[in-house]
Amino acid sequence: MIIIEGSEGEGGGQVVRNACALSLVTGKAVRIENVRAKRSKPGLMRQHVTAVEAACVIGNAECQGLHVGSSVLSFTPGRVAPGEYHFAVGTAGSTGLVLQTVLMPLLLADAPSRVVLEGGTHNMLAPPFDFIEKCFLPVINRMGPTVEARLVRHGFYPRGGGRIEVDISPAPLRPIDCLERGALIGVSGQALLAGLPFEIAEREIKMVRRELGWSDREAGIRELPDDQGPGNILLLEAQFEHGTEIVSGFGQLGVTAERVAKKAVGRMLGFLESKAFAGPYLADQLLLPFALAGGGSFTTVKPSQHSLTAIDVIGRFLDRRLAFSQRPSGMHLLTVQ
C-alpha cells in the first residue's frame, strides 16, 4: 500500500483526488494521512467525500475513513466499470473537482460512460465549468479520447443546485506536445449574474472595458434566472490558434465589483504578456493525463506549489518523471519521461 503524507507540499484536496484516480488506474491501494492538514478546516469536506464516493462506485473500491472531517483515508481499488453514473455533491461543492477524480479512470476504460454531476458549477475554490469545457477538454480530446460536457444549470456558492452532463468515449491517451499557443484569435468577457443587483455586473464590465480596452461587443453581461442564484462570476477568455485561456473573478460579500474585476484583469494581462500555452490552472489539470500518456510536453508560466505537489503524488504511482525547466523566454517547459 502506498502511504502519502497529506500535509506535505500544497497540502490540499488535490492530493486526495489525484491519489484516488491513480489508484484506480494502477490498481495500487493508497492510504492518505493528515488529509488537507494545511487548510483552515483540515480533513475531508463534503465535495472531497463525494469525489471519493464517486471513485468507489466507478471502481468497485473499498474505502475506510470516508466521512466529513476525516484526516485519514484508505482506498483499495477494484475494477473500473464504465456506465451511466449520477453523483450529487450537495450545496455548492464543486462538480468539476468530482469530475477530475473519475475522468481519467473512465477515459481508460473499455466502453463509453455518461456522468451527471449536481452541485456547484461556479465557485471560488475550483475551475468553473467554462474553463473545463473550453480550456481543459479540448486538450484531452487531442490526446485520443472524446469527452463532451454540457452545462444544464448554473450552481453558485453557497446554494449550488447546478448540473453538468459529461459523455466519455474512451481511448488510450497518446503523448502530444503543446509548446506554442499560436496567434490570438479573439477575446471575450462576460459577467454572469443571478439574483443580484444588475449594477454589480455593469461595474465589472466597465472595469474590463477600461483596463483591457475591449469593446462593447467583446465584453458584456448575461443575466441568469433568479432561481439559479444568488451568484456572480466574471469570465475573461482569450482564444488562440492552439488553445484557450479563461480567467475568472468571483463576486463575494464585502468585495467590490471593481476589485473582483481588477484581479481578473490582472491575471489576464499577465497571461497575455506571456507566450506560454497553459496558464497555472490548466497546467495543474494537464499533469495527470500527460503522465498517464507516458510522454509529451507543454509550456506554462511559473509552476505553482499545486503543480509540484501533484508531480510528487504522480511519482508515487507511476514510473514516470515529470519535470519543469525554465526557458530563456521565462516560460517553463513540462516534460514527461
Rank of each mutant, 00 (worst) to 15 (best):
E245L: 12
G243D: 02
G189E: 06
G220R: 12
R217D: 14
D227V: 09
G213P: 02
A201W: 05
S188F: 04
R203Q: 14
D226N: 13
L193W: 05
I221N: 06
D227E: 14
S248K: 02
K206I: 04
I221G: 01
E204F: 04
Q228F: 08
L193S: 10
I233G: 00
I233V: 15
G229L: 06
E223V: 15
G229F: 11
I233D: 00
G229M: 10
G220Q: 07
R203Y: 02
G213H: 10
F240L: 09
I233S: 01
F240T: 03
I205W: 06
G195C: 12
S188L: 06
E218N: 05
L224P: 00
L192V: 14
D216P: 00
I233Y: 00
P197G: 08
D226K: 13
E202A: 10
P225I: 11
S215I: 14
L234D: 04
L235I: 13
G213A: 12
L212N: 03
W214G: 01
E241K: 13
A219Q: 02
E199L: 11
L193V: 15
L236E: 03
G195H: 08
I246M: 04
E241P: 02
L234V: 04
E223S: 11
G195T: 11
G213C: 08
P230F: 10
P225A: 14
V247I: 10
R210F: 08
G231I: 11
D226A: 15
S248D: 13
L224I: 08
S215D: 10
G213F: 11
